[in-house]
């Protein structure tokens, strides 16, 4: 298979990305402090909103605090990094080198996303104590929830990485997309459900958010973890995530087919 022949090359791309990540480790540390600051604020606000009530809409305060802590830690870990990079490489014309490599460009990008993820794991380990101090962490609601969460987390990573890849590929049409990316990031951030769990979002808004892929990044996995799976059962929740992975892969293939023909190499 041609795919397996490419593995060493893809591993090299992934390792390169890991090294890049470590040159910016000071920024990663400060962003971790910010996550702690945000988690603490959210847990305090929601506690104040609950007041004397221990349970609202079937969600106990303990579950909610664990949800907020874990969801924000997770969104921080899965935060998009590569779209900006693609844009910069197109602007400077380096994209020509990327495209001339014998490995497909989307595969290269996924490989560097994997490198990013693996490289980020040690930083994530440091994030746990921060989250523990700032918010509240507990074991998953049940053994099932634990296994379900692990599977959902992998799917969440896939959805986050694929969405990021998709946004990056849009740069092939328009180089100036800072405004678009800002709006996308903001809507996306909110629609993951990390700031306001979807249980408490007004119906009309929730319906819209449920039609978007972002909830697969935080709300679905973390709701499984705390024992209140988004769709009612762990199985269907995982199916919704897997469906988004499938749809995004198909969509990216199509977009890439179009983008490749559009490519203009600047400079050279």
């Amino acid at each position: 298979m041609t795919w397996s022949r490419n593995v060493p090359a893809l591993v090299a791309v992934a390792r390169m990305q890991m090294r890049i990540l470590y040159t910016y480790r000071v920024n990663a540390m400060f962003s971790m402090v910010l996550v702690g600051v945000q988690i603490y604020l959210l847990t305090v606000i929601w506690q104040a909103a609950y007041g004397n009530r221990t349970e609202v809409d079937g969600i106990a305060i303990g579950q909610l605090l664990v949800y907020l802590t874990l969801a924000n830690l997770q969104v921080w870990f899965l935060r998009p990094k590569m779209a900006e990079d693609i844009q910069e490489r197109i602007r400077q014309g380096q994209i020509g080198f990327d495209l001339s490599r014998p490995v497909g460009y989307p595969s290269q990008l996924m490989a560097s996303a994997i490198g990013d993820m693996i490289g980020g794991l040690p930083i994530l380990l440091l994030g746990f104590p921060v989250a523990f101090i700032a918010g509240e962490l507990q074991r998953p609601a049940s053994l099932e929830a634990g296994f379900g969460y692990t599977a959902a987390l992998i799917l969440a990573w896939l959805v986050a990485a694929l969405l990021n890849l998709l946004v990056g590929l849009i740069s092939f049409w328009t180089v100036e997309m800072n405004g678009f990316r800002m709006i996308y990031t903001l809507v996306g951030n909110f629609a993951t459900g990390a700031l306001v769990p979807l249980w408490f979002v007004p119906d009309a808004m929730r319906t819209i958010i449920q039609l978007l892929p972002f909830q697969a990044i935080a709300f679905i996995p973390v709701s499984i973890y705390v024992g209140e799976p988004a769709t009612g059962s762990i199985g269907t929740a995982l199916i919704v995530q897997a469906m988004w992975v499938g749809l995004l892969i198909l969509f990216i293939r199509w977009v890439w087919g179009q983008a490749f023909r559009h490519t203009v190499i600047q400079g050279g």
Binding site: A49, G51, G179, L186
Partner: peptide
Amino acid sequence: GGIIYQLTGFLIVWIIVNRFNTI
């Protein structure tokens, strides 16, 4: 972008107060 950025911040407050009446 600046307006949307601030409004998403306010959206959190609005949703919570909408559901819980006060903070």
